[in-house]
Amino acid sequence: MSDLASIDYTVDELMAVCVARQVQDGDMLVHGLATPLVAAGYMLAFRTHAPNVTFASAVGQGVVQDWAPLSITRTEEYWLGKAMANASFVVTVADVLHSFAPKEFFRPAQLDPYGNSNNIAIGKDYARPRLRLPGAGGIPDVSVFSEKMYMYVPRHSRAVFVPQLDWLSGMGHHPARKRGSGPRYLVSDLGQFDWANGSMRVVSCHADVPLRRIQAKTGFELEIAPDLGETPLPSAEEIRLLREEIDPLGVRRLETLAGTARRTLLREILARERSL
Protein backbone atom coordinates (compact mmCIF):
# COMPACT_ATOMS: atom_id res chain seq x y z
CA MET A 1 0.00 0.00 0.00
CA SER A 2 2.90 2.34 0.55
CA ASP A 3 5.52 3.08 -2.02
CA LEU A 4 7.81 4.70 0.57
CA ALA A 5 10.63 2.27 0.01
CA SER A 6 10.72 3.06 -3.66
CA ILE A 7 10.73 6.85 -3.34
CA ASP A 8 13.72 8.34 -4.98
CA TYR A 9 14.97 11.46 -3.20
CA THR A 10 18.17 13.42 -2.78
CA VAL A 11 19.74 14.50 0.49
CA ASP A 12 18.89 18.17 -0.06
CA GLU A 13 15.25 17.14 -0.37
CA LEU A 14 15.45 15.06 2.79
CA MET A 15 16.96 18.02 4.69
CA ALA A 16 14.23 20.36 3.39
CA VAL A 17 11.61 17.85 4.56
CA CYS A 18 13.30 17.68 7.99
CA VAL A 19 13.18 21.48 8.21
CA ALA A 20 9.50 21.44 7.26
CA ARG A 21 8.73 18.94 10.01
CA GLN A 22 10.19 21.30 12.63
CA VAL A 23 7.66 23.96 11.64
CA GLN A 24 4.48 24.17 13.67
CA ASP A 25 1.34 25.77 12.34
CA GLY A 26 1.19 29.38 13.53
CA ASP A 27 4.97 29.83 13.78
CA MET A 28 6.68 33.10 12.96
CA LEU A 29 9.60 32.01 10.75
CA VAL A 30 12.63 34.08 9.78
CA HIS A 31 14.31 33.49 6.44
CA GLY A 32 18.02 34.23 6.86
CA LEU A 33 20.47 35.31 4.18
CA ALA A 34 21.32 32.79 1.49
CA THR A 35 19.46 29.88 3.07
CA PRO A 36 17.42 28.37 0.21
CA LEU A 37 17.38 24.90 1.77
CA VAL A 38 15.54 26.36 4.75
CA ALA A 39 13.27 28.40 2.48
CA ALA A 40 12.32 25.20 0.65
CA GLY A 41 11.48 23.54 3.97
CA TYR A 42 9.43 26.52 5.17
CA MET A 43 7.44 26.65 1.92
CA LEU A 44 6.87 22.90 2.13
CA ALA A 45 5.51 23.30 5.66
CA PHE A 46 3.21 26.08 4.45
CA ARG A 47 1.93 23.86 1.63
CA THR A 48 1.41 20.82 3.83
CA HIS A 49 0.66 21.14 7.54
CA ALA A 50 1.26 24.79 8.47
CA PRO A 51 -0.88 27.20 6.42
CA ASN A 52 -0.97 29.71 9.29
CA VAL A 53 2.74 30.46 9.51
CA THR A 54 4.02 34.01 8.99
CA PHE A 55 7.32 34.48 7.19
CA ALA A 56 9.72 37.32 7.90
CA SER A 57 12.71 37.99 5.71
CA ALA A 58 16.08 39.65 5.78
CA VAL A 59 15.24 40.72 2.22
CA GLY A 60 12.90 43.69 2.54
CA GLN A 61 12.25 43.12 6.25
CA GLY A 62 8.68 42.22 5.43
CA VAL A 63 6.06 39.85 6.75
CA VAL A 64 4.33 37.52 4.33
CA GLN A 65 1.54 34.95 4.71
CA ASP A 66 1.85 33.39 1.31
CA TRP A 67 4.31 31.22 -0.57
CA ALA A 68 6.16 31.41 -3.88
CA PRO A 69 8.62 29.20 -5.77
CA LEU A 70 12.28 29.71 -4.87
CA SER A 71 14.29 32.10 -7.03
CA ILE A 72 17.78 33.60 -7.16
CA THR A 73 17.46 36.94 -8.91
CA ARG A 74 13.78 37.62 -8.36
CA THR A 75 13.32 37.03 -4.64
CA GLU A 76 12.06 40.60 -4.24
CA GLU A 77 8.98 39.77 -6.33
CA TYR A 78 8.01 37.57 -3.41
CA TRP A 79 9.41 39.51 -0.45
CA LEU A 80 8.26 42.91 -1.67
CA GLY A 81 5.44 41.93 -3.97
CA LYS A 82 3.63 39.76 -1.44
CA ALA A 83 4.63 41.48 1.80
CA MET A 84 1.76 42.74 3.93
CA ALA A 85 4.07 45.21 5.67
CA ASN A 86 7.72 46.23 5.50
CA ALA A 87 9.94 48.21 7.84
CA SER A 88 13.47 49.52 7.75
CA PHE A 89 16.11 47.24 9.23
CA VAL A 90 16.64 49.68 12.09
CA VAL A 91 12.97 49.52 13.07
CA THR A 92 12.86 45.75 12.58
CA VAL A 93 15.86 45.07 14.80
CA ALA A 94 15.23 47.72 17.44
CA ASP A 95 11.45 47.59 17.76
CA VAL A 96 9.80 44.39 16.58
CA LEU A 97 12.23 41.48 16.70
CA HIS A 98 11.86 40.75 20.42
CA SER A 99 8.07 40.74 20.40
CA PHE A 100 7.82 38.54 17.28
CA ALA A 101 10.04 35.92 18.99
CA PRO A 102 10.57 34.13 15.67
CA LYS A 103 11.90 30.66 14.90
CA GLU A 104 14.98 30.69 12.69
CA PHE A 105 17.33 28.13 11.16
CA PHE A 106 20.98 29.22 11.32
CA ARG A 107 23.87 27.78 9.32
CA PRO A 108 27.02 27.80 11.47
CA ALA A 109 30.50 27.78 9.96
CA GLN A 110 31.75 26.18 13.19
CA LEU A 111 29.69 24.57 15.93
CA ASP A 112 30.93 23.23 19.26
CA PRO A 113 29.38 20.38 21.33
CA TYR A 114 27.19 22.87 23.24
CA GLY A 115 25.69 24.51 20.18
CA ASN A 116 27.80 27.66 20.37
CA SER A 117 28.62 28.85 16.87
CA ASN A 118 31.11 30.89 14.84
CA ASN A 119 30.35 32.85 11.67
CA ILE A 120 33.17 35.40 11.98
CA ALA A 121 36.39 33.80 10.78
CA ILE A 122 38.32 30.52 10.78
CA GLY A 123 41.63 30.85 12.63
CA LYS A 124 42.54 32.43 15.95
CA ASP A 125 44.45 35.37 14.43
CA TYR A 126 41.61 37.85 13.92
CA ALA A 127 43.81 40.35 12.05
CA ARG A 128 44.94 37.68 9.57
CA PRO A 129 42.45 34.80 9.64
CA ARG A 130 42.85 31.58 7.70
CA LEU A 131 39.42 32.29 6.19
CA ARG A 132 37.36 35.38 6.77
CA LEU A 133 33.64 34.54 6.77
CA PRO A 134 30.85 36.94 5.74
CA GLY A 135 30.05 37.81 9.36
CA ALA A 136 27.59 36.99 12.08
CA GLY A 137 24.67 39.17 10.95
CA GLY A 138 22.23 39.22 13.85
CA ILE A 139 23.29 35.94 15.50
CA PRO A 140 25.22 37.56 18.41
CA ASP A 141 22.08 39.62 19.11
CA VAL A 142 19.36 37.01 18.77
CA SER A 143 21.12 33.93 20.14
CA VAL A 144 21.36 35.43 23.65
CA PHE A 145 17.58 35.65 24.07
CA SER A 146 15.96 33.35 21.50
CA GLU A 147 13.92 30.35 22.61
CA LYS A 148 13.66 29.06 19.05
CA MET A 149 17.09 28.64 17.51
CA TYR A 150 17.37 25.81 15.01
CA MET A 151 20.45 24.81 13.03
CA TYR A 152 21.29 23.15 9.76
CA VAL A 153 24.57 21.99 8.26
CA PRO A 154 24.34 20.90 4.61
CA ARG A 155 27.85 19.38 4.58
CA HIS A 156 28.58 17.56 7.84
CA SER A 157 32.31 17.58 8.55
CA ARG A 158 34.99 17.93 11.22
CA ALA A 159 35.63 21.44 9.86
CA VAL A 160 32.15 22.46 11.04
CA PHE A 161 31.73 20.32 14.18
CA VAL A 162 34.74 21.32 16.26
CA PRO A 163 35.64 20.76 19.92
CA GLN A 164 36.63 24.43 20.29
CA LEU A 165 35.43 27.44 18.31
CA ASP A 166 37.85 30.00 16.96
CA TRP A 167 35.30 32.73 17.84
CA LEU A 168 31.99 32.46 19.65
CA SER A 169 29.50 34.65 17.78
CA GLY A 170 26.36 32.62 18.54
CA MET A 171 25.51 31.54 22.07
CA GLY A 172 24.45 27.94 22.56
CA HIS A 173 23.85 25.98 25.77
CA HIS A 174 26.26 28.24 27.60
CA PRO A 175 26.77 28.92 31.33
CA ALA A 176 26.61 32.70 30.75
CA ARG A 177 23.11 32.45 29.28
CA LYS A 178 20.54 34.60 31.10
CA ARG A 179 17.46 34.04 28.95
CA GLY A 180 16.32 31.95 26.04
CA SER A 181 17.76 28.60 25.13
CA GLY A 182 20.57 27.09 23.12
CA PRO A 183 19.65 25.50 19.80
CA ARG A 184 16.79 23.01 19.90
CA TYR A 185 17.53 20.99 16.80
CA LEU A 186 20.00 20.44 13.98
CA VAL A 187 19.71 18.65 10.67
CA SER A 188 22.72 17.80 8.53
CA ASP A 189 23.18 15.69 5.42
CA LEU A 190 23.88 12.74 7.74
CA GLY A 191 21.29 12.90 10.52
CA GLN A 192 19.17 14.78 13.04
CA PHE A 193 20.43 16.06 16.39
CA ASP A 194 19.31 17.83 19.55
CA TRP A 195 20.77 19.17 22.79
CA ALA A 196 18.40 17.46 25.24
CA ASN A 197 21.15 17.29 27.86
CA GLY A 198 22.99 20.44 26.78
CA SER A 199 25.48 18.54 24.62
CA MET A 200 24.93 17.61 20.99
CA ARG A 201 23.12 14.31 20.62
CA VAL A 202 22.33 12.26 17.55
CA VAL A 203 18.61 11.49 17.41
CA SER A 204 18.34 9.79 14.04
CA CYS A 205 20.61 8.72 11.20
CA HIS A 206 19.50 9.32 7.62
CA ALA A 207 18.87 6.17 5.59
CA ASP A 208 22.06 4.26 4.75
CA VAL A 209 24.21 6.44 7.03
CA PRO A 210 25.86 4.35 9.76
CA LEU A 211 26.28 6.01 13.17
CA ARG A 212 30.04 5.45 13.04
CA ARG A 213 30.23 7.60 9.90
CA ILE A 214 28.44 10.47 11.66
CA GLN A 215 30.78 10.16 14.63
CA ALA A 216 33.82 10.01 12.35
CA LYS A 217 32.76 13.24 10.65
CA THR A 218 32.16 15.05 13.95
CA GLY A 219 35.14 16.56 15.77
CA PHE A 220 33.85 15.69 19.24
CA GLU A 221 32.10 12.82 21.00
CA LEU A 222 28.38 12.81 20.25
CA GLU A 223 25.76 11.74 22.75
CA ILE A 224 23.45 9.07 21.39
CA ALA A 225 19.69 9.12 22.00
CA PRO A 226 18.47 5.90 23.64
CA ASP A 227 15.80 5.53 20.98
CA LEU A 228 18.17 6.31 18.09
CA GLY A 229 16.45 5.48 14.84
CA GLU A 230 16.39 6.22 11.15
CA THR A 231 15.16 9.60 9.88
CA PRO A 232 11.62 9.17 8.55
CA LEU A 233 11.65 9.17 4.76
CA PRO A 234 10.01 11.93 2.72
CA SER A 235 6.60 11.15 1.30
CA ALA A 236 5.98 11.04 -2.42
CA GLU A 237 3.82 14.17 -2.11
CA GLU A 238 6.52 16.09 -0.23
CA ILE A 239 9.03 15.28 -2.97
CA ARG A 240 6.56 16.18 -5.68
CA LEU A 241 5.82 19.54 -4.05
CA LEU A 242 9.53 20.33 -3.67
CA ARG A 243 10.45 19.39 -7.23
CA GLU A 244 7.44 20.59 -9.16
CA GLU A 245 6.03 23.55 -7.25
CA ILE A 246 8.27 24.92 -4.52
CA ASP A 247 11.71 24.67 -6.07
CA PRO A 248 11.59 23.52 -9.70
CA LEU A 249 14.85 25.43 -10.39
CA GLY A 250 16.71 23.45 -7.69
CA VAL A 251 17.96 26.50 -5.78
CA ARG A 252 18.07 24.44 -2.55
CA ARG A 253 20.79 22.24 -4.06
CA LEU A 254 23.26 25.15 -4.05
CA GLU A 255 23.76 24.69 -0.33
CA THR A 256 25.13 21.18 -0.72
CA LEU A 257 27.73 22.20 -3.33
CA ALA A 258 30.97 24.19 -3.32
CA GLY A 259 33.45 25.60 -5.82
CA THR A 260 33.07 24.87 -9.52
CA ALA A 261 30.10 22.53 -9.10
CA ARG A 262 28.25 25.29 -7.31
CA ARG A 263 29.06 27.90 -9.97
CA THR A 264 27.96 25.48 -12.71
CA LEU A 265 24.62 24.93 -10.99
CA LEU A 266 24.23 28.68 -10.47
CA ARG A 267 24.67 29.26 -14.21
CA GLU A 268 22.11 26.56 -15.01
CA ILE A 269 19.58 28.04 -12.62
CA LEU A 270 20.13 31.56 -13.93
CA ALA A 271 19.63 30.39 -17.52
CA ARG A 272 16.39 28.62 -16.58
CA GLU A 273 15.20 31.56 -14.52
CA ARG A 274 15.78 33.99 -17.37
CA SER A 275 13.70 31.87 -19.72
CA LEU A 276 10.70 31.84 -17.35
Binding site: F89, A94, A136, D141, S143, L168, S169, G170, A176, K178
Partner: peptide, 29 residues
Amino acid sequence: TEASLALGIRATLSGVGFIPSQAWIGTDM
Protein backbone atom coordinates in the same frame (compact mmCIF):
# COMPACT_ATOMS: atom_id res chain seq x y z
CA THR B 1 25.94 43.06 14.09
CA GLU B 2 22.38 43.94 13.19
CA ALA B 3 21.79 45.29 16.70
CA SER B 4 25.06 47.22 17.04
CA LEU B 5 24.37 49.01 13.75
CA ALA B 6 20.65 49.57 14.31
CA LEU B 7 21.08 50.77 17.89
CA GLY B 8 24.28 52.69 17.11
CA ILE B 9 22.28 54.56 14.46
CA ARG B 10 19.54 55.13 17.04
CA ALA B 11 22.15 56.55 19.43
CA THR B 12 23.22 59.11 16.82
CA LEU B 13 19.61 59.93 15.96
CA SER B 14 18.84 60.42 19.66
CA GLY B 15 21.98 62.42 20.36
CA VAL B 16 23.08 60.11 23.16
CA GLY B 17 26.42 58.39 23.74
CA PHE B 18 25.09 54.84 23.65
CA ILE B 19 22.00 52.63 23.50
CA PRO B 20 21.92 49.61 25.83
CA SER B 21 20.95 46.10 24.72
CA GLN B 22 20.90 42.45 25.80
CA ALA B 23 22.85 41.59 22.63
CA TRP B 24 26.45 40.27 22.60
CA ILE B 25 26.64 39.49 26.35
CA GLY B 26 28.43 36.16 26.74
CA THR B 27 29.81 36.10 23.17
CA ASP B 28 33.33 36.85 21.92
CA MET B 29 32.17 40.07 20.23
